[in-house]
């Protein structure tokens, strides 16, 4: 205990977990800034974030955030998000347990005609689809869990990986009920 400060001491270290949160928000100006500001202002981490309008009639967007923290912090994040006025619902997909998470990546690889069969073989094994073929380079599209995408990128690296563009994780719960 530091006696020169009037603040309470830091809590003992706890395990850090990654959680995926699905957030339904009004699609209005500034809503994303509010969500991001909450994370930066309160010192929470964002591993990935995706957002798009999902219900055009109602102007609702769905934000999927992958964040990291102790179970207490994760709960705080969920509670803090729920306090924001334009936020309708927050569901912790990781706690709910029955969710599917996917990510899409486009991967550009330098591959001349000679190397192309080898690249194609790896892509086929992981179910990546070639979506562009230009002189000297090809672009693959791959969808799946983050692990699978990491694996594909790892395998492309020695074969001439140029760049990667990833969507970040989107998630949805199994079963017949909506959010």
């Amino acid at each position: 205990m530091n006696t020169t400060t009037h603040y309470p001491a830091a809590p003992a270290a706890q395990s850090i977990e990654a959680h995926t949160l699905s957030v339904i928000v009004d699609n209005e100006p500034g809503v994303l800034a509010r969500v991001i500001g909450l994370f930066s202002g309160r010192g929470y981490n964002i591993d990935s974030l995706t957002v798009s309008e999902t219900e055009h009639q109602k102007h609702l967007s769905r934000i999927t955030i992958v964040t990291r923290g102790t179970p207490m912090v994760i709960e705080q994040i969920k509670n803090q998000l729920e306090r924001l006025v334009p936020i309708h619902r927050v569901v912790d997909m990781t706690v709910a347990g029955r969710s599917i998470e996917r990510e899409l990546a486009m991967v550009k690889v330098a591959a001349d005609a000679q190397k192309r069969p080898e690249v194609q073989k790896v892509a086929d094994a992981l179910g990546a689809r070639m979506i562009d073929e230009s002189a000297g380079g090809v672009i693959f599209e791959i969808t799946g869990g983050s692990d699978k995408i990491e694996q594909f990128i790892g395998q492309m690296l020695p074969l001439g990986l140029i760049e990667v563009s990833r969507t970040g994780i989107v998630a949805i719960a199994r079963g017949a009920e909506g959010m």
């Binding site: 400060t5 009037h6 603040y7 309470p8 001491a9 830091a10 809590p11 500001g37 930066s40 202002g41 309160r42 010192g43 929470y44 705080q76």
Partner: peptide
């Protein structure tokens, strides 16, 4: 406020950078 209290609504805390 100390780093472990940031975001915790500690005494005299505000999101200064925000």
């Amino acid at each position: 406020v100390p780093t472990h209290l940031i975001g915790n609504d500690a005494f005299q805390e505000c999101d200064t950078v925000g």
